[in-house]
């Protein structure tokens, strides 16, 4: 599987993302945000965490206007896979690839700790390696992770099984305890928790490694 990890000014989880993807067997290329095109033959685009453009205006808003973001939207439009983590999730909502928005944590504090996540659906390449209802432990580290969408959108996400992960103990006020959502075609996932920070037992946990292994594994068998 060929993966591209996008690097914006202020990205800080890009190298961790690349390490986790390579450990799962992916062929990873780092792509600077000013590039207007993705490398040929890319299967997965990973938009990493961090503070792109210093979170100016709104988290992810400026990054969503970068030249590479148009290429990411086109890639998704062709049925390509996209994973956005933390700031990457914020970027994906700002490009409207995913519905809703991430607003300031209800408790106003930056929350940085490992949380329990419930796997809400296994019907996606990202979550197929888990069991439905399984609780995994993944770190969160964000100030604006409070998922918001209007009532109709939330009902649609729930009805279509597009909520990928929910918090066991909601750390930020997110609607319906949502930690991650899928696109309509289930090939774009945005999530606030950091699976790449739980991809090696030496770093305190490996529950996130299965997300990458499952994702890369799908390409090995098809």
């Amino acid at each position: 599987m060929k993966a591209a990890v996008i690097v914006f000014p202020g990205s800080n989880c890009d190298r961790d993302m690349a390490v986790a993807l390579r450990a799962a067997g992916a062929d990873v290329t780092m792509v600077w945000h000013k590039d207007a095109a993705l490398p040929a033959g890319v299967d997965l685009v990973a938009v990493p965490g961090g503070f792109s453009f210093g979170d100016y205006l709104r988290c992810g808003a400026i990054a969503a206007q970068s030249p590479i973001s148009r290429a990411i939207v086109n890639h998704a439009g062709r049925g390509g896979y996209v994973l956005g983590v933390c700031n990457g999730f914020q970027v994906l909502t700002e490009t409207r690839l995913l519905p809703g928005a991430l607003i300031r944590n209800a408790g106003l504090r930056f929350v940085c700790r490992t949380v329990g996540l419930r796997v809400a659906t296994t019907d996606s390449a990202f979550t197929a390696a888990y069991a439905t209802g399984e609780v995994i432990r993944i770190p969160v580290a964000h100030h604006d992770g409070n998922y918001f969408a209007d009532a109709d959108t939330l009902a649609r996400l729930e009805g279509d099984g597009r909520i990928a992960f929910t918090y066991k103990d909601n750390p930020n006020g997110a609607a319906l305890d949502i930690a991650g959502v899928l696109s309509d075609n289930r090939r774009v996932l945005g999530m606030m928790p950091h699976p790449e920070r739980a991809a090696d037992p030496a770093l305190g946990g490996s529950d996130g490694a299965r997300l990458f292994a499952g994702l890369v594994g799908q390409f090995a068998t098809t």
Partner: peptide, 8 residues
């Protein structure tokens, strides 16, 4: 297109 996110 940029200054506001009309979702919120």
């Amino acid at each position: 297109r940029l200054l506001a996110n009309t979702v919120i």
